[in-house]
Measured scan of single mutants.
Amino acid sequence: MATGGRRGAAAAPLLVAVAALLLGAAGHLYPGEVCPGMDIRNNLTRLHELENCSVIEGHLQILLMFKTRPEDFRDLSFPKLIMITDYLLLFRVYGLESLKDLFPNLTVIRGSRLFFNYALVIFEMVHLKELGLYNLMNITRGSVRIEKNNELCYLATIDWSRILDSVEDNYIVLNKDDNEECGDICPGTAKGKTNCPATVINGQFVERCWTHSHCQKVCPTICKSHGCTAEGLCCHSECLGNCSQPDDPTKCVACRNFYLDGRCVETCPPPYYHFQDWRCVNFSFCQDLHHKCKNSRRQGCHQYVIHNNKCIPECPSGYTMNSSNLLCTPCLGPCPKVCHLLEGEKTIDSVTSAQELRGCTVINGSLIINIRGGNNLAAELEANLGLIEEISGYLKIRRSYALVSLSFFRKLRLIRGETLEIGNYSFYALDNQNLRQLWDWSKHNLTITQGKLFFHYNPKLCLSEIHKMEEVSGTKGRQERNDIALKTNGDQASCENELLKFSYIRTSFDKI
């Protein structure tokens, strides 16, 4: 039985969820670079991206490699990797027998973001014989899940209580170790020597080791999670996991709180800001991140802002960003909400898709409305799209047979046209069989910064309504002859009103 693990408890099935942008060198404390989270699957090609990484700022997932063999891993080693800020997950990587050479110096898994409450997941690794993470000293947050690894031993010899604050939620089941077939031998045991430290858990006094050649490092209890030197002297209180010299914040392997210019500090002093819960960055760093993602459509890219001495992905609820200094300031009234469309555009074809934009005031991208039916549609669209004030790209209304009016965009005031449909149009209306009105132009103002209007096959939309939009939106004169079809717009509506004058002759039985 794995020490510190839980057996036999019912657990939810383990679901495996399925960018080499360097964020800056980590400095003297770390020998390499800070790398983003990685999802490495199918083959070993991307694994080489770990070569210079000291910190993975995010998670590391290595999974679904069915053609790899043990010899493929023999020359692979990433000794610079010290810390993973989120979680480490391995799933069905064939041929991998140990992690001792792959990650010989991995010391800390912070667990800032977890995989279903777990910071370390080893699942269905069919050839893994031992973990071998002999320098792993601290899992700051989260638990361990090690399950269905039929060859995995050296679990009962690990004292997880020396690595985690609590072992109650560890789930370590259905491994070879369960069948008591392992016969784990710690260093020196074969020669009758006791080389590794022994600890007591559940009444068992057991030597602690990761492999037959690597003991588990056990520091004096007084050192807590700070770690200790090879001689057993406690590291500085700002260290986490390990250090090369005692009581020196510049000799830590990793930091308990924050890293700044080669030393570990309790908090980031001005003019620095907390970033990702582990390091200090200056304003320029946060500003660069903001600008890199301002026009990016890459998933996970955030326009970072500053709030409460932190550089964070977005302002919290009730705050909006001051564009001059990136500071989050309290909103006066309802907060603006910028919604970034991942692929640059979004099609609204149902109430469900409209709900995804609920509360958005600025759309960074283009909207395509293609709704053919739905219950209580006008009210639903207004509830979900009615706060949109600005669209950076274009607005396209296409084959939306259920629409009679666009009044559900009740606050839309600006279409920038930074991206144009077919390279020309910022407003595009095609084949809307029941569209009769755009907006009530006596109450609604709309500016279209650039781009043209396109109207074709809107049989109940009168040309007068379209011409009014040209005047109000500032697009009059931009359109070419064929942009607004004269014969297919309003051709099934009563669009022309003329005053009919009647004269009559009164007659009676005795007068003409």
Rank of each mutant, 00 (worst) to 15 (best):
H28L: 09
H28M: 03
L29V: 11
L29M: 11
L29F: 03
Y30I: 02
E33V: 06
V34N: 07
C35R: 02
G37P: 13
G37V: 02
D39M: 15
D39T: 04
D39Q: 15
I40N: 02
N42C: 07
N43H: 05
N43P: 02
L44D: 13
L44S: 07
T45E: 02
T45C: 15
T45R: 12
T45L: 13
E49C: 07
E49A: 05
E51V: 05
I56Y: 00
I56T: 01
G58L: 00
G58V: 00
G58W: 00
H59C: 09
H59P: 12
L60H: 00
I62R: 02
I62Y: 01
L64P: 15
M65F: 05
M65Y: 14
F66G: 14
F66K: 12
T68A: 07
R69P: 06
R69W: 09
R69K: 04
R69L: 09
P70I: 04
P70R: 07
D72M: 11
R74H: 15
D75W: 04
D75C: 08
F78C: 01
P79F: 05
P79Q: 12
K80Q: 09
I82Y: 13
I82T: 07
I82V: 07
M83G: 02
T85Y: 02
Y87N: 01
Y87F: 04
L88I: 03
L88P: 00
L89P: 00
L90T: 09
R92T: 06
R92Q: 03
V93H: 14
G95T: 06
G95N: 06
L96H: 01
L96R: 00
E97R: 15
E97I: 13
S98T: 11
K100L: 10
F103N: 00
P104E: 02
P104K: 01
N105L: 02
N105P: 00
L106H: 01
V108L: 10
I109Y: 00
I109A: 00
R110S: 12
R110F: 04
R110G: 08
S112E: 15
F115Y: 09
F115I: 03
F116H: 00
N117Q: 14
Y118N: 01
Y118A: 12
L120Q: 00
I122H: 09
I122P: 10
F123S: 11
F123T: 05
E124F: 08
E124V: 02
E124N: 03
V126A: 15
V126T: 03
L128W: 01
K129W: 06
K129E: 09
L131K: 01
L131P: 01
Y134D: 11
Y134E: 06
N135L: 02
L136C: 04
L136A: 01
M137L: 07
M137R: 10
N138L: 07
N138G: 05
I139C: 04
T140E: 04
R141E: 14
R141Q: 12
R141H: 06
G142L: 01
V144F: 02
V144C: 03
V144A: 08
R145K: 15
N149P: 01
N149G: 04
N149A: 02
C153P: 00
C153E: 01
Y154R: 05
Y154C: 04
Y154L: 03
L155Q: 05
A156M: 13
A156P: 08
T157W: 02
I158M: 07
I158V: 08
W160T: 01
S161Q: 14
R162C: 13
L164T: 10
D165F: 10
D165W: 13
E168D: 07
E168W: 13
D169V: 07
D169C: 12
N170Y: 05
N170W: 04
Y171M: 10
V173R: 14
L174N: 14
N175Q: 09
N175R: 04
K176L: 02
K176E: 08
D178W: 14
D178A: 12
D178F: 11
N179M: 05
E180V: 09
E181H: 15
C182F: 07
G183D: 13
G183R: 14
G183E: 14
D184W: 07
D184T: 04
D184F: 04
I185H: 07
C186T: 04
P187C: 13
T189K: 11
T189V: 04
A190G: 04
A190R: 08
G192F: 14
G192H: 08
K193C: 14
T194L: 13
T194R: 04
N195E: 10
N195C: 06
C196W: 01
C196M: 09
A198M: 07
A198P: 10
A198Y: 05
T199F: 13
V200R: 10
V200F: 14
I201T: 06
N202T: 11
N202Q: 14
N202R: 07
N202P: 12
G203K: 11
G203P: 05
G203Y: 09
G203N: 14
Q204N: 08
F205S: 08
F205L: 11
E207A: 08
E207H: 08
E207V: 05
C209K: 06
W210S: 04
H212A: 14
H212C: 15
C219Y: 02
C219S: 03
I222T: 12
I222Y: 05
K224N: 07
H226V: 10
H226T: 13
H226N: 11
C228N: 05
T229S: 11
T229V: 09
G232R: 03
G232M: 11
C234K: 02
C234R: 01
C235D: 00
C235K: 00
S237A: 13
S237G: 11
E238I: 02
E238A: 13
E238C: 01
C239Y: 00
L240I: 10
L240E: 09
L240W: 01
L240H: 03
C243K: 00
S244R: 11
S244M: 14
S244H: 12
Q245A: 14
Q245T: 04
P246T: 07
P249F: 02
T250N: 05
C252L: 00
C252V: 00
V253H: 15
A254D: 01
C255P: 00
R256H: 08
N257R: 08
L260I: 12
L260P: 00
L260A: 12
G262L: 04
R263S: 04
R263N: 05
C264M: 00
C264S: 01
T267P: 04
T267A: 14
C268V: 00
C268S: 00
P269M: 03
P269Y: 06
P270I: 12
P271T: 13
Y272K: 07
Y272P: 00
Y273S: 07
H274A: 15
F275I: 05
Q276M: 06
W278S: 08
W278Q: 04
R279E: 03
V281L: 06
F283S: 06
S284V: 09
D288K: 05
L289P: 06
H291M: 12
C293F: 02
K294L: 10
K294M: 13
N295V: 03
S296P: 04
S296A: 12
R298L: 13
R298H: 04
R298G: 06
R298K: 04
H302M: 11
Y304P: 09
V305E: 04
I306H: 07
P313R: 10
P313A: 07
E314T: 15
C315R: 07
S317W: 06
G318T: 03
Y319R: 10
T320R: 07
N322Q: 09
N322F: 10
S324D: 10
S324Q: 03
N325C: 13
N325Y: 09
L326V: 10
L326P: 07
L327K: 15
L327Y: 15
L327I: 05
C328G: 02
T329S: 09
T329I: 08
T329L: 11
T329K: 05
L332M: 13
L332Q: 11
P334V: 02
C335F: 05
